[in-house]
Design a protein around this nucleic acid. Structure first.
Lengths: 278, 278
DNA sequence: GCGACTTTGTGCCTGTGTTCACAAGCGGTT
DNA sequence: AACCGCTTGTGAACACAGGCACAAAGTCGC
């Protein structure tokens, strides 16, 4: 899957190597570890819960009151078993033989994702993308009011975009503290991104969504998610290439026992999308 | 990784259950499976390769000719062992005791990702986001020339955005075929997305980058990647909530053996970010 | 030329995420 | 009230990804 989900930044590195030895020594005292693990919903599951929430909202608008895991899974584009397991992480809110009540599920997912508390958002870098983000209707409607905009350009200072006046990046720390911004969105070019990031952190922002094509350095207690459009494209490009190659191999000689030995692809030369061998 | 990367859509469902039995029967004839697997670079590795490529381009511009896995890994924000393993998927292009030659690595990664062939891109939905994408400098500079724009609004028909005239969505099939568009970007609202998607597919587009908050239905031979900004936000929100909870538990009663039995979090009620128990 | 040092490439092991398959449980029906 | 069909929730098996640690293989200095 396109794990996009699999991103590079934001990886949790605290491996459990340390307590393994301890657990082996006294198998009963796993409680603290289990406790920590209980709250630990797999990263991938969290991403999917957000998707389920969106789908459920759709059902709710159509006045659907009950869904089965099968229906919901189909609508969300996942396996029903996976869906049930994902939902089981947040508790047992289904009725066997019936399904899940839409409203209950929405409430519980929102609670789990921390959406009961509104998070105010700051967008830095009011270029094309920043404009788009500032005007993006999806944020406020989902509980993410954009409450501050920043840009380096002094000409933009005070100019309202999407109803919110743009401030200079020098004011980031001050404004973020004042408005209790919890999520910062970096939509600047690569150069300024780290500097902006540092200021956001200084302003008390604990989560950053980064559109700039750089790997940000942040303290451990700050969470970064990265969206890199060029990377997304390149991943797609890879799949095109793989498909073309597959098609080419399927047409030509199908089973070449000659190269059955090792990992092949490094030795192949792809020219114009055709596979060529010496 | 926060598998931001982990996305939901685009999951490969062709599981290998079928050939497992076959392999058991005659252990030597794993060749076709191995063959297919040989070309299969792990999804997560592909995403990282794209990141390495960007970092390497940076080095190249600074006229750095050689990098060690350690340096490159640090710049890309990953473990050096992981980096070496990722690079090993595309072949052995390093020199032991020295490192990797930047230019060679760039060339090989580009080849692997299929960037030797230019992919022309079509953007559908010229709203705020579409504008941003049409003007996004990152695409052409990385080998993704935007060669067509579409919108539903007849008033936009013919209006140039970022130097390219916008066409009506009715022309999608025709134009995509004519210009051999391989990647379609959907930046429309949710309603129109599936319809647009169908047309892109009819126009021969095999890869779609979807910004609309819907799960697209596509044939098996079309690859979809989804970028959902609201979902990204919600994932961040989850991490804020988790952190606050952690902090709260760390301060208050640390070890409550009472609830050591089962999965706890479903039973907890979070009000205003504080953990409350009955 | 030889030895010491450096860095790659990879085998192995651990942990995480996914899938399967089935028991447990609930509602409706007779 | 007992049965039957349907759907959830989860235990167990499996595949995948990550990280360590080390042998292989090269360079540099002498």
């Amino acid at each position: 899957m396109t794990s996009h989900g699999d991103d590079v930044q934001g990886g949790e590195d605290r491996s459990g190597t340390g307590d393994r030895a301890a657990a082996k020594e006294s198998p009963d005292v796993e409680v603290p570890a289990a406790r920590e693990r209980a709250r630990a919903i797999p990263e991938a599951a969290v991403a999917r819960l957000a998707v389920y929430l969106r789908v459920l909202s759709g059902f709710d608008e159509e006045s659907v009151t009950t869904v089965s895991s099968e229906e919901l899974a189909a609508a969300a584009g996942v396996n029903s078993a996976k869906l049930r397991k994902d939902l089981s992480y947040i508790g047992s809110y289904g009725t066997r033989g019936v399904g899940y009540e839409v409203s209950v599920l929405i409430g519980q997912i929102e609670r789990t994702l921390g959406l009961t508390r509104k998070h105010s958002v700051a967008v830095v870098g009011i270029g094309n993308l920043g404009h788009a983000l500032a005007n993006y209707g999806g944020f406020p409607s989902r509980g993410f009011p954009v409450s501050a905009l920043f840009d380096l350009d002094p000409d933009l200072d005070g100019v309202p975009v999407g109803g919110i006046p743009v401030r200079h990046v020098d004011d980031i720390v001050e404004v973020c503290q004042e408005r209790e911004v919890t999520i910062g969105v970096i939509a600047t070019p690569a150069q300024g991104a780290q500097e902006v990031c540092d200021r956001l952190v200084a302003g008390g922002v604990s989560c950053i969504l980064n559109f700039a094509p750089v790997v940000l350095q942040v303290p451990d207690d700050v969470e970064v998610r990265k969206v890199d459009l060029a990377v997304e494209m390149q991943i797609l490009s890879f799949h095109v290439a793989r498909r073309q190659q597959d098609a080419a191999t399927a047409n030509g000689a199908d089973l070449g026992p000659l190269d059955g030995a090792g990992p092949v692809p490094a030795e192949m030369d792809s020219v114009n999308g055709m596979v060529v061998r010496p």
